[in-house]
Design a protein around this nucleic acid. Structure first.
Lengths: 358, 358
DNA sequence: CTGAAAGCGCTTACAG
DNA sequence: CTGAAAGCGCTTACAG
C-alpha cells in the first residue's frame, strides 16, 4: 500500500488538466457544491482518486481566512492530570466540530510571555483560543484591561474569575469549599483544617473562602486559622497534616484540596497511628478513579473537567460563528459564563460506618 | 492595552508602503536577513511597530512549504494519564525547536480511520507525525506493508514494535516484565501471578513474555498459567486478584501491569485480610507519584514517559531535516530506534522489612 | 543593499 | 452548469 503524493504535491490544477475541466469545477466537486453535473463530478472524482489528490488545507486557509484551528494555551507544569483529562474533552469536541487543536504551553505568565503567546496565535491565525493556564494571583489581570474585542479571534478562559466582557467557564470553587466543609460539620466535626492548593491561585482562594464561610455559618469562625498551604502534590499531604496538628491539636477533620494530597494525608495518618475517620476524617477534591480504592476509600468531590473543557470549546465555537455573522450549531448554544458544580461523593474516610459505600 | 490588527489584517504590503520600501525588504527585516542597511531596517521596524504588523504564518507556510507543525496522533480513551504526561515532554521539546503541536485523537484503529487520519495530516501539511496510539493487535500492521517513504512527511511511532524502515521509540517491556519477576523471585516468591493490561496490546504481550521468561529461567514455567487480563484501570485490580487466587490458591506475589490496577489489588487484599507483603507481595508499573504513599508503599517500575516523547520528537525533527537535505540540530542526533528502560523502585509492598524505603 | 515578477494552491465573486 | 481572473500574504530566485 502506497500513499501517493510523495514526490511532488498534486494540485487542483493537475486534477483539472487531467479531467479536462477548470480548477473551479474541481474545487466545486471537492467542496460538494450542488452545481455540477453528475457526469463531470464522477469524472473529476475519478481523476482525484487516480492522482491521489489531497487539497492543501494551508492554501484553503489562506484564501478563506479561517484556519479551522483552535489554540489551547495551558501550563503543564503542575496539575498535568487535570490538563490531560481536559484535553480529552477538547480534542473530542473539536474533532466533532471540524476543528484541530494547536497546543501551546506557557512557562511563566509575565505580561511579556502572554503577549508573545497571543502574537504567536495571531500569526498562526487560529480561529479561537482556549486559555487554560491557571489563574495565578493577578496573572489574568490582563484580561481585565484588555480590549478583547480587539483581538482578531475570540478567547474563552477556563477556570478563571468571571469578568464582564470575557468569556469564562469555571467550577464554583467557593461552593465546593463550602459544601465539603458542611459535610464534615454535619458529621459532628468541629476542628476542621484545610490543606489548600498554592495560595496564589484563584481556585485555591475560592475554596478557602467557601471553607471559611461554612465555618462561620456554624459559628466556628476561629477555626479558619487551621489553614496550611500545599502544592496539589501528594508529597505535600503528610507535612500538611503535621503542621495542621501543631496549629490545632484537637484536629478532627481535614478538607484537602486534592485527592493526591489526600493520599499523602492518609499515609501520614497511618504512620501516626491515627484512625481514619474515627480520629480524623479526611476528604479530597477531584474524585480520581483511584480514590474509591484507597484505604480507607476517600470521600471526595467529583469535578467533571472534560465537561468543562467541552463546554468551553462549544462556547468558543459560538463566539467564532457570531463574529463572522454566521449562525452557530445548536450544540454551541452555551450561556454567557457557565458555572459547573462539584458533586460530593461520600466514602469511608469521612463516614464512620462499617458498610462500604463504594 | 489594545492589540492592534483587530479590524483588518495588516500585511507586508502595508508596512512596505508606509516605510516607502518594497515588500521584499520588509520580508528581509522580518526574517533577519543581513543585507539591509541599519537605516532602512530601523525605519521598517518602526513601521511594523506602528501598524502592529504580524506576519501571517499561513502565508509563509504556503510559500515555503513547511508548516512548523507536528501532528500528534493518540488515543485518549485509555491511559490518558500516560498520554497527558507524554504531551508535556512533547510540547516543551517542540516549543524549544520552534514547532507547534497539532493534536488529533483516533477513536478506532481500523484501516479506514488510519487512512483518514493520514489524509488529514497531509492536507494540513504537518512537517512530521508522532504516532502515539497504542499498538493493538495488528493495528500497526499498516506500518509494515506501508511505504513510509511515500508519505510526504516522516513519522515516528511511540511504544510500538521496532520494524525495519519505521522509526520507533519504545520502552523495553519484555525486559520490564523480566526484571519485575526476577525481583519477586529474588524475594523467595514462587507462585507469582500477573495481572496484565489488555491482551491485544503489544506492550502487554511483551511484558507477559518477559514475566514468563523469568519464570522459565527459575525453573517455574508452569507458573506462566497464573495470568489474568486487566484493563490498566483501578477497577480491574480487585477482580484480577480474586481470579488469580482461584487459579493459584498458593499465590504469594502479583506483578501488576499498572500502578492503578495495583491500587485495586491492595484494596482487595486488605478486604480479604491478606497482609502485604507477608502473605502476598504486590508490585506495579509506572511508579506514579502517589505510589510511594500507598499503604503499604508500592514497589513499581519507573517509566520516563515524558522522556520517551521528547526523544521521539527529536528523532522526528532529525528526519524532517534529513528529508530536506538540511543539517539537523545536535540535540536531534538520536540513534535509529532508541529503547528506553524501566527502573525498579523497591518499596514495602514487596519487601518485608519494617524500615520505610520511601 | 534593494526591487519587480512569479509562484505557493486554493477560493471568491463575476460572467457566460 | 462551467470558466477566466483576481486575490489571500507571504517567499524565492533573478536583476540591478
Amino acid at each position: 500500500m502506497t500513499i501517493p503524493g510523495g514526490d511532488k504535491r498534486v494540485t487542483l490544477a493537475d486534477v483539472a488538466k487531467l479531467a479536462g475541466v477548470s480548477k473551479q469545477t474541481v474545487s466545486r466537486v471537492v467542496n460538494g457544491s450542488a452545481h455540477v453535473t453528475e457526469d463531470t463530478r464522477e469524472r473529476v472524482l475519478h481523476c482525484i482518486e487516480t492522482l491521489g489528490f489531497r487539497p492543501s488545507a494551508l492554501a484553503r486557509q489562506l484564501s478563506t481566512g479561517r484556519s479551522q484551528t483552535i489554540g489551547v494555551v495551558s501550563n503543564g507544569g503542575q496539575g498535568y492530570l487535570v490538563t490531560g483529562v481536559a484535553y480529552l474533552g477538547m480534542v473530542r469536541q473539536a474533532d466533532r466540530m471540524g476543528y484541530a487543536l494547536l497546543i501551546k504551553e506557557m512557562v511563566d505568565f509575565s505580561a511579556g510571555s502572554v503577549r508573545a503567546m497571543l502574537d504567536f496565535l495571531i500569526e498562526r491565525q487560529v480561529d479561537g483560543v482556549i486559555w487554560a493556564g491557571p489563574e495565578i494571583g493577578d496573572s489574568h489581570a490582563w484580561l481585565d484591561d484588555f480590549d478583547l474585542a480587539s483581538l482578531p479571534m475570540p478567547l474563552v478562559a477556563i477556570n478563571a474569575k468571571a469578568r464582564p466582557g470575557v468569556d469564562t467557564v469555571s467550577f464554583d470553587n467557593f461552593e465546593a469549599g463550602r459544601l465539603a466543609t458542611r459535610h464534615l460539620l454535619s458529621l459532628g466535626r468541629r476542628n476542621i483544617g484545610h490543606i489548600s492548593g498554592p495560595a496564589n491561585r484563584w481556585v485555591t482562594q475560592q475554596r478557602v473562602e467557601g471553607w471559611r464561610a461554612a465555618l462561620a455559618e456554624a459559628g466556628l469562625p476561629e477555626a479558619g486559622r487551621n489553614l496550611v498551604e500545599g502544592d496539589w502534590d501528594v508529597t505535600s499531604g503528610g507535612p500538611g497534616l503535621r503542621r495542621l496538628r501543631e496549629i490545632c491539636p484537637q484536629l478532627d477533620a481535614v478538607f484537602v484540596g486534592s485527592d493526591r494530597m489526600a493520599i499523602g494525608v492518609l499515609a501520614e495518618a497511618h504512620r501516626l497511628g491515627l484512625r481514619v475517620p474515627e480520629d480524623i476524617a479526611v476528604m479530597g477534591v477531584d474524585n480520581q478513579p483511584e480514590s474509591a480504592f484507597l484505604i480507607p476509600p476517600l470521600t471526595s468531590m467529583t469535578q467533571d473537567t472534560p465537561r468543562m473543557a467541552e463546554v468551553a470549546l462549544r462556547l468558543l465555537v459560538r463566539r467564532i460563528c457570531e463574529r463572522r455573522g454566521e449562525p452557530y450549531p445548536e450544540a454551541c448554544a452555551i450561556p454567557e459564563s457557565p458555572v459547573l458544580y462539584h458533586d460530593l461523593v461520600v466514602r469511608a474516610s469521612t463516614l464512620c460506618s462499617k458498610s462500604p459505600t463504594r
